[in-house]
Amino acid sequence: MGKAFKKAEALSDRPTHYCPGCTHGVIHRMVGEVIDELGIRGKTVGVAPVGCSVLAHEYFEFDFMEAAHGRAPAVATGIKRVRPDLNVFTYQGDGDLASIGTAEIIHAANRGEKITAVFVNNAIYGMTGGQMAPTTMPGQRTTTSPFGRNVHDVGMPMRVSELLSALETPAYIAREAVIKPKYIMKAKRAIKKAFQYQMEGKCFSLVELVSICPTNWGMTPQNSVKWAEEILLLYYKPGEYKLPEEM
């Protein structure tokens, strides 16, 4: 009874700089495992823009490029267009993708770039110290919404998966969460499916992963999981929002 569990080869064993309880680490692990399972480490290039995960290249064992804040989908487009044989993925936070990088992700999806976007949504800007993001919840306190997000002033949080799913171009758009094992298992399947769609040259793929940020939420990891499950997941509902076959 039981099974073995070990670190993926595509993942380095370098300790990460992420805060205790930050689930970036869980997502890194899954991306590493998927790349191992698909055997594509030698043909993969990762693109990490600015955010807590800008140092992602330290934690993987394959080629990587840094992009400016919000521009990873464009960098990935450049790579994929001149080297369509490479697997290219971006690893972006919500401040990066849903704010400064909105045009880039929408147009990469709309052109149907055969790249994969791993999109980490923790409803806040992490690296810069906890500012409000487009995904910050109504009433959620951050350093730039000290009295809670005022939706009458800055609008409602942005649901990226739903937004991108409205585009006509075929794509694989899914949202999962990484806050508990039962969600993490589904998240892993979605990430693998996204990479497989890319390998088949089928469509653009994006997996939004609801994640926790104990440090900037000002909660323990345990309470962060609770808050994420009771608040975030009700607003950011998991599910496969768009499948290329639907076209």
Binding site: A74, G78, I106
Partner: peptide
């Protein structure tokens, strides 16, 4: 070769970075 019209010069600059970064003439 490969031609692509980007959504803005901002994006185009980074498409150049990506393509140049993987060693192609851009």
């Amino acid at each position: 070769g490969v031609f692509l019209q980007g959504e803005s010069e901002v994006a185009v600059g980074y498409m150049v970075l990506g393509a140049a970064g993987c060693g192609e003439r851009v």
